[in-house]
Structures are given as structure tokens and as C-alpha cells.
Design a protein around this nucleic acid. Structure first.
Length: 578
RNA sequence: GCCCCCUUAGCUCAGAGGAUAGAGCAACGGACUUCUAAUCCGUCGGUCGUAGGUUCGACUCCUACAGGGGGCGCCA
């Protein structure tokens, strides 16, 4: 990564300054490289001289002069042209200057920037990927909504966050597995099956009552119909317990298919739908409870079995794993589930995407990790806040159509998948979202995703037009391209290249902070840089010399790559025309 | 009561120890016989909830308080 190279160069310069005696040979904090806010301050900057001055004061008692220190470091940084043996485009750093109280400002070499246009084109689909993960296996578990019906719109945020994060992790070089944990054992699922059974019987005009707290959404009628289409009246003639057992399989398939379709509408897919029930079926839950009992982590008290979470930091209470009536809690299977993830499947790290109402569960899972002898840092929780949908100034929770909770599907149908993804992604996860539906539908174009997509469509159109106006196939990079790109000297051209080259840093940032929303702002900035180029630098115009036009077409190709990649990372389409 | 998160422009939000706090929308003014105006340029707009503290330097870290949201079950 560019920033890493610069960091290394500055660090070397610090060492060289110390070796030459210009800088006292004391411990100096590690060099950090920032992106200055003001363009006048260069492409990158370092505050190392300010930090070094403090260090000097601390160790020697003498006040260090930050500007003097900065100068001694600046003197040791090689810039383009200092080494005669190299090509003008070889050197990353164009110039270095000392500024303000002691900042070291670094500007990239224009010749090098120009050469990067061809690098970006060559990288294509790989552009923006970094080596950070080194192929380590990471898992992202997200959505994992109860399989009892269509997804509530709030689940959309979970889906979008998890999916985008998984995309980013892949770009960062991790081997990513996307997983949906299916809670197909336990009370809620059981209630769902009982309810489905009732709706099924009602098709045959049997008069049966819904169980208490049973599900009664209109969708259950559809599910029951589907069950009937598949099974006919077979279940009608079975003992209720046998019928329900059969429905467990059938109902599971029906509801999961529904959820799958709904998520596919948002562009979200999973590698694995992991069954909670399977943990019981193969005896893993029992096995682990035994193991933990043996190790003194689980004890019996008041007729129930408890996990002694309070032994571990952050936990005040113990947790029931098996109720006094003998039935296990979800927490029991959660222990087994995470054991399976880390110990059996060997994920280096697991990221669970949870809504804030699960925050109380975080310390408990930390305790589980410790009890299982696993480093707690390997389980990371991405906690996100709730989504509030507003229509005409009022909060909407229910669907007008069905009377049920408003679903992801309905919101996607109303607003469109890309716009929904964008609006669920732009806000940082820990903040709640207030989203005005009426506004979104009324003024659809105000959604910034269309701005980015429009930029992409414009490039495609430009490239297509170039082919028709006598340029050789614009998709093919000509032999003399390396020379062509040196004609890209307009500030808008160089700014666009700079912006594109930020992509890797953006990927790293979003991964390190678990902040996929950063990407949406980068996408806008990138598009803005392209627009400025598009406005200021004509390509297919009689005034523009063919050689320059060719160079600008190359830049456009690179910009198309960058924009399409960023849209792809966000899980949105990159339209060729709008 | 205890714990966690949020509070930045009229609105919706970025910014996470650096230099003069940014964007979109809204409002106002300008640019279309276009390489796609779903665009671009400009103007207006801020004691970064309040009060202290740490630091050469704080929207950013610490403490207290206020307002908003969430969590504290043999629920999931």
C-alpha cells in the first residue's frame, strides 16, 4: 500500500537522521502517516517531528525544536530525481516540505501518479484489494433472524452491514465465509410450527385455535398453502405430533426459501445456513455441557444448570443453560455453536452482526470464549442501532398491505435495492437511522447512489462513443500508453488519479474499524473527482489533440474500473446506461 | 437503580489526537444547439449538548451533568 511505503520511507529517514547525529538517538514513537485535510498540505503528512520533540524533552529534559527535527528528517527523504539511475515514474514521492509547527508534508510524484492509470486498468477486478488478511479464514455471521416469517425491515440493516463487511474482508485478503444461523430449535420456532399447523388445518376448514402467542401474520396463510401444495392433505390424517414433526422440516424449508428470496432481492447471499438443531442432533451441546461441568464452568443450582459467567470480567450474573424442566436455553446451543466455529471449523476470527438489543449478550459470549480457552478477541461483535421508518412524519411499523410488520421485501420494492442498501449503509452502525420513506420514493434521485451510478454510466457512454468516433478499440491499452499518460497534467486529472489511489486505504480503514459506511463517502468523493475531470477535460472534441484524447480515455477506463469496484464492494450495480 | 450507545450547519449525516470542522439536501444566484444537466460552479449557514480536566495541540481522550435510544428474565 502506498501509505505503508511512505511510512517506511519516513521511518528510514528518522533512523538516518539519528545515525547522522542530527537527531538524538532516543526512543521515538512509531511514524504515523496522515491524510491532511487541506490539499495545500500535500498528499500525506507526518507529525513525527512534533512527537519526537516531546520525546526529546522527556528523555533529555531539553526542549526539542520540532521544526529543526522535522528539517533533519526531511533532509533524509529521497525524492523523485534525487537518484539519477531511476526512471521519472519510479519514485513515489515528488516533494517533501516542512510546514507549520513541524509537520512534514509529502507530495506524490506526478509522473508516478500518471503511471498508476495503467496499473489500475491492469488490475481491473482486483483493483482495491490488499494483502492484509493473507488468506486467513474469517467468518461473518449476519441476519440470523428467527426463521418464523419474512424479514422485518430492521433486519435489512443487518443484512447490508454484514454483506458489505464480508465484501470488504474479501478485498482485504481474508478467506471469508458468510453464514446465517438458523434458530430452528427452541420456543420461537416451535411456536411457528404450531401456528403453521393451525393454518394448514384451517385450509381444510378444521376449527382449531392458535396457540397462545402463536404467529398469526397473513404470510402464514401463504406458507400453509405452500405446505398443502407440496404435501396435499397427507398431514391432515396424521397424529398431531407426527404432523408437527413433519411440518418442522417442511415449514423450515418454506420459511428459509422465503427469507432467501427476500435477501436475494437485496443482493445478499450466504455460503452456509447453519442449523441450530443440528448441534443437538449430533450431541455437541450435551458434549460441551459435560465438558464444562467437568471443568467447573457449569454447575447445578435450584434444579437448573448454570454457566458461571460471573467468574469472568464484565459479567455480574450467571446464565441458565438448562432450565429446571430439562429444556436447554438458546445459550446452551450458542456455546456449542461457537465451539464449532472456532475449534472444529478453525476460523481465525468470527464477526457477528447484532442489533443493539443484543448488547447484553456480548460480555456473556466473552465469558464463553474464556471458558472454552479461546482468546476473546477472536469473537468480534458488530453492533448496530435500530432503523426507524418514517412516512408522512409518522413512524411506520406495519405494512398497509398485509397488516403484518413491514418487511425488507416491501421496502426494497418501494425504493429499489441499490437505494435501500445505500441508505442503510451511509450511517455509522452505532447510530440509529431515521429514514423517510415518502421522501425516498418521491425524490428518488436524491439518493447519492444514483450520483455514483450516473458517473459510471457516463464513463461507459463516453468510451462507447470513442469507439464510434474513430478511436481504436478504447478497451485495448495501446503500446505507447506509458507515454500517453504523461500528458495527464491537468489538476482535475491528477486529482482523480489521487482519489482512485485512496481505495486501498479506504478498504483497510473500513475493515479495521468495522465501518462499512466509510465506503459510501469514498464512493461520492471518487465520483466527484470524476465529475470534475469530466467537466474540465474534454475527450472527444475537435480542440483536443488525439494523443491527449487517448490519454484521457485511458484515465476514463481506470475511473470506470474504480467506480465499478466501489459499487461492487457496496453490493450495488454499476449500470452502463441510465 | 446499574451498564452500553448517541448528541456536529435549518434537515440527514461524515470526521475518531493535528494545521482554517466537511458533504448531501433545503434556501439563494449562475451554467444546457452536452462527451448523458440524474450534472457542474458560486453564496448563505457551526460557541461540535453543557461544565471542567489531560495535552505543544481536543469534535476526537478522561470526569461530571443534561437530553434521546437500548440493555439488565429458568425470553430469543
Amino acid at each position: 500500500m502506498i501509505r505503508d511505503q511512505i511510512q517506511q520511507t519516513v521511518a528510514n529517514a528518522v533512523a538516518a537522521a539519528q545515525a547522522s547525529g542530527m537527531l538524538p538517538a532516543i526512543d521515538i514513537p512509531p511514524v504515523e502517516i496522515q491524510r491532511p485535510n487541506q490539499p495545500e498540505h500535500g498528499d500525506y503528512s507526518s507529525n513525527i517531528a512534533l512527537l519526537a520533540a516531546s520525546a526529546v524533552k522527556k528523555t533529555t529534559g531539553q526542549k526539542g525544536n520540532p521544526r529543526q527535527i522535522a528539517q533533519s528528517i526531511v533532509d533524509q527523504i529521497p525524492t523523485a530525481g534525487t537518484q539519477a539511475s531511476r526512471l521519472p515514474s519510479d519514485d513515489l514521492i515528488g516533494s517533501v516540505e516542512l510546514a507549520g509547527p513541524g509537520f512534514i508534508n509529502i507530495r506524490l510524484n506526478a509522473r508516478w501518479l500518471q503511471s498508476q492509470v495503467l496499473t489500475i486498468i491492469a488490475e481491473g477486478e482486483r483493483f482495491g484489494t490488499i494483502e492484509k488478511g493473507e488468506g486467513r479464514p474469517w467468518q461473518v455471521e449476519y441476519v440470523s433472524a428467527n426463521p418464523t416469517g419474512p424479514l422485518h425491515y430492521g433486519g435489512g440493516r443487518n443484512a447490508v452491514l454484514g454483506d458489505t463487511l464480508a465484501n470488504l474482508l474479501e478485498a482485504a485478503g481474508y478467506e471469508v465465509q458468510r453464514e446465517f444461523y438458523v434458530n430452528d430449535s427452541g420456543t420461537q420456532f416451535q411456536l411457528f410450527i404450531e401456528s403453521l399447523y393451525v393454518f394448514y388445518l384451517q385450509i381444510f376448514e378444521r376449527d382449531v385455535e392458535l396457540p397462545q402467542e402463536g404467529y398469526q401474520g397473513a404470510y402464514l396463510r401463504d406458507y400453509a398453502q405452500l405446505a398443502r401444495e407440496r404435501e396435499g392433505d397427507r398431514l391432515l390424517h396424521m397424529e398431531p405430533s407426527a404432523a408437527k414433526a413433519a411440518l418442522k422440516e417442511i415449514g423450515r424449508e418454506i420459511v428459509l426459501q422465503d427469507i432467501k428470496d427476500e435477501l436475494a432481492g437485496l443482493g445478499v447471499t450466504f455460503d452456509l445456513w447453519f442449523s441450530e438443531q443440528s448441534l443437538y442432533d449430533e450431541g455437541l451441546v450435551d458434549q460441551l455441557l459435560m465438558k464444562l461441568t467437568h471443568e467447573g464452568e457449569v454447575i447445578e443450582r435450584d434444579g437448573a444448570r448454570w454457566f458461571l459467567a460471573s467468574k469472568y470480567p464484565g459479567n455480574e450474573k450467571d446464565e441458565v443453560v438448562v432450565r429446571s424442566n430439562g429444556s436447554p436455553t438458546y445459550f446452551a446451543s450458542d456455546i456449542a455453536y461457537h465451539y464449532d466455529k472456532f475449534v472444529r471449523r478453525g476460523f481465525d476470527r468470527v464477526i457477528n452482526v447484532w442489533s443493539v438489543d443484543h448488547q447484553g449478550h456480548i460480555p456473556r459470549m466473552g465469558a464463553v470464549m474464556r471458558a472454552l480457552d479461546l482468546e476473546p478477541e477472536r469473537l468480534v461483535i458488530l453492533l448496530y442501532n435500530l432503523v426507524k421508518l418514517i412516512r408522512d412524519g409518522q413512524e411506520v411499523k406495519m405494512s398497509k398491505r398485509s397488516g403484518d410488520l413491514l418487511t425488507v421485501r416491501e421496502v426494497v420494492e418501494e425504493v429499489g435495492p441499490d437505494a435501500v442498501r445505500f441508505m442503510l449503509l451511509t450511517t455509522s452502525p452505532e447510530r440509529s437511522i431515521e429514514f423517510d420513506l415518502s421522501l425516498a420514493v418521491q425524490r428518488k434521485n436524491e439518493n447519492r447512489v444514483f450520483y455514483v451510478q450516473y458517473g459510471h454510466a457516463r464513463i461507459c457512454s463516453l468510451i462507447q462513443k470513442a469507439a464510434k468516433s474513430g478511436f481504436d478499440d478504447p478497451e485495448v491499452v495501446p503500446d505507447d500508453a506509458a507515454h500517453s499518460v504523461t500528458l495527464l497534467t491537468h489538476p482535475a486529472e491528477l486529482t482523480l488519479i489521487r482519489r482512485m489511489l485512496e481505495m486501498e486505504e479506504q478498504v483497510e480503514l473500513a475493515v479495521e474499524r468495522l465501518s462499512p459506511h466509510n465506503l459510501t463517502y469514498y464512493a461520492e468523493d471518487l465520483t466527484k473527482a470524476f465529475s470534475a475531470f469530466y467537466e474540465n477535460c474534454q475527450v472527444l472534441h475537435s480542440d483536443v489533440p488525439p494523443e491527449l484524447a487517448r490519454a484521457r480515455l485511458l484515465l476514463s477506463l481506470a475511473a470506470r474500473t474504480a467506480l465499478s469496484r466501489v459499487l461492487q464492494l457496496m453490493g450495488m450495480t454499476a449500470p452502463k446506461a441510465m
